[in-house]
């Protein structure tokens, strides 16, 4: 098992009483969540429970209507001019990879450092290759995304986010659209990142991964955080009926 005893301080994400509505439908209800530097959070819950909505509010792909979200010390609100500032320090990995199909793998990774941070091309290439090495596909650098397998594409997507050297990484079901044999290689990559101390919030149904990596597991249902705890407590000793039901369903597969 990895070390979990690093001194946890520095709140990277802080959400206080956050609520969000899609029209009349309430997708998030009074969410309170604090993620400290180096923490690894896994969010699980049934489909439609608001997991994606929550992490998309963190980098303001969605706007919340009530409560406060603070990310790396910047408060997110409607009139903000520095969304880009927040997004620079928050990496996001999507279920469907969302690589840029008209660019090579290398260019996918070089784009953000070059165009956002103004890193010179040579240096951006070095950064990109470094992180492609880290996800173990440097040899695919000059291919186009369509030429890669799903697992490889997702690893490129992870490398692309890492190139911005974010303070926190958000994963929205990174393995849900992959074939079983590719799930392992992506989870291995994410686990590697966790070992190296990357702060992360990961929405996933991979309970083995949650057990091995998470500092805290959060269970959501109908837009609420129902239960949260260490993986040990969460899996051995769930408190709420809804959690028990969910776990029995997901672990029976």
């Amino acid at each position: 098992m990895n070390k979990r005893d690093a001194i946890l301080s520095d709140e990277v994400i802080e959400a206080k009483n956050v609520s969000k509505w899609y029209g009349a439908f309430r997708a998030l209800t009074d969410i309170n969540l604090t993620v400290r530097k180096g923490e690894r959070i896994v969010i699980c819950g049934p489909s439609g429970s608001g997991k994606s909505t929550l992490i998309r509010c963190v980098n303001r792909l969605e706007a919340h209507q009530d409560g406060e979200i603070t990310v790396t010390g910047i408060r997110l609100h409607n009139k903000m001019r520095n969304v880009a500032e927040v997004r620079k320090s928050v990496g996001m990995v999507f279920q469907h990879f969302n690589l840029f199909p008209h660019m090579t793998v290398l260019m996918n990774c070089m784009a953000a450092p070059m165009w956002i941070k103004g890193v010179p091309e040579g240096e951006a290439r070095k950064i990109a290759l470094k992180f492609l090495e880290r996800v173990r596909i440097p040899e695919q650098a000059n291919k186009y995304p369509a030429q890669l397998s799903g697992g490889q594409q997702q690893r490129v997507a992870i490398a692309r986010s890492l190139c911005m050297e974010p303070a926190v990484m958000l994963f929205d079901e990174p393995t849900s659209s992959l074939d079983p044999e590719m799930v392992a290689e992506v989870l291995e990559t994410v686990t590697g990142l966790a070992r190296d101390g990357m702060t992360m919030v990961c929405v996933t149904h991979e309970m083995g991964f949650a057990r091995a990596v998470a500092d805290r597991v959060i269970f959501m249902d109908r837009g609420e955080i129902v239960e949260e705890g260490t993986p040990h407590d969460f899996f051995r000793n769930p408190q709420h009926e809804r959690t028990k039901l969910f776990l029995s369903q997901i672990l029976s597969h």
Partner: peptide
Amino acid sequence: EASRSLGFG
């Protein structure tokens, strides 16, 4: 979403 989340305007 991918582009905006990387910080592109």
